[in-house]
């Protein structure tokens, strides 16, 4: 079976919504953090087109203080890949799920085993920010064979020739990293955000979503002047850290949804 060339559920879903003229909104939530399941469900109900579930890792090098803190607290509360994934089949969202975690968890479990566990948990796609294109082939092949779409990250520093290969290799969508730096809200949208999204759009017709550094609905709208959508992470997790719970997350996602729908 040549599953590698098939379009997966995440990509099909996002392409359809884009086709309907909608800008795409993905919410990131740290798995295992207190109340995360309810937050996932309200985020979906409030208009997220897909959910990124973080599996906490001990050494999250692509994450800024907010997601680091949530990850560490989740780990201290006993979160593990198994405990987070076990909860996913019970989540009532109606949208595709990606996991976002770090490569060692996949490496340690073994590619096939990890990919199979994701599939069995109702996960459609995986994002591994410390697995760059040059090192990614063995994982991508195992993931594709199991039916997991691997979402690759394109950085502002990625050179032209690699960008084309990277967009080609990416499944689900292309994750355009909006700035030079780690996750976290910023006061202004970096110039690199629309720049990298634009460069991706020139070489692929897959959905291109910009993430890292988006901190307000206005910035999301600005990013979507070029990108097909945005990923909102730290802003969501900060609501949880601030004790606003699923309700706060729902309100936040609704504000992004409304802004994007209003254009």
């Amino acid at each position: 079976m040549n599953s590698a060339s098939k379009i997966g559920r995440m990509e099909r879903f996002l392409r359809d919504r884009r086709g309907n003229g909608s800008k795409l909104l993905v919410a990131y939530i740290t798995g295992g953090y207190e109340g995360w399941e309810a937050a996932v469900e309200t985020a979906a109900a409030a208009g997220a087109d897909a959910i990124e579930i973080g599996i906490p890792f001990s050494d999250p090098v692509m994450d800024g203080p907010v997601i680091q803190k949530a990850s560490q607290m989740a780990l201290e509360a006993g979160a593990s890949p198994a405990s987070v994934l076990a909860a996913v089949p019970n989540l009532d969202t109606g949208v595709p799920h990606a996991v976002m975690t770090y490569y060692n968890l996949a490496h340690h479990a073994g590619h096939e085993r990890f990919a199979a566990t994701l599939v069995n948990s109702g996960i459609d796609a995986a994002i591994l920010p410390d697995l760059p294109l040059v090192e990614s082939a063995p994982w991508r092949e195992a993931a594709a064979a199991a039916g997991i779409e691997t979402i690759m990250l394109a950085a502002p520093t990625t050179p032209e020739d690699r960008l084309a290969d990277l967009c080609e290799a990416s499944k689900g969508f292309v994750y355009a990293v909006g700035l030079l730096g780690v996750t976290g809200e910023r006061a202004n949208l970096a110039a690199t955000a629309t720049e990298i999204a634009g460069r991706c759009k020139q070489v692929t017709d897959k959905p291109v979503l910009t993430g890292v550094g988006i901190g307000s609905p206005e910035q999301a709208v600005e990013a979507c002047s070029v990108a097909d959508g945005v990923i909102i992470g730290s802003a969501v997790v900060r609501r949880l850290l601030d004790g606003e719970g699923a309700e706060g997350v729902g309100e936040l996602i609704a504000s992004y949804r409304n802004a994007l729908d209003a254009g």
């Binding site: 410390d130 697995l131 760059p132 040059v134 990277l166 990293v177």
Partner: peptide, 20 residues
Amino acid sequence: DEGRFGEFGGRFVPETLVPA
């Protein structure tokens, strides 16, 4: 060329740092 000593080594960094 891939920076491997046997199977060990490599370049497992965020895409941002690969060009660096």
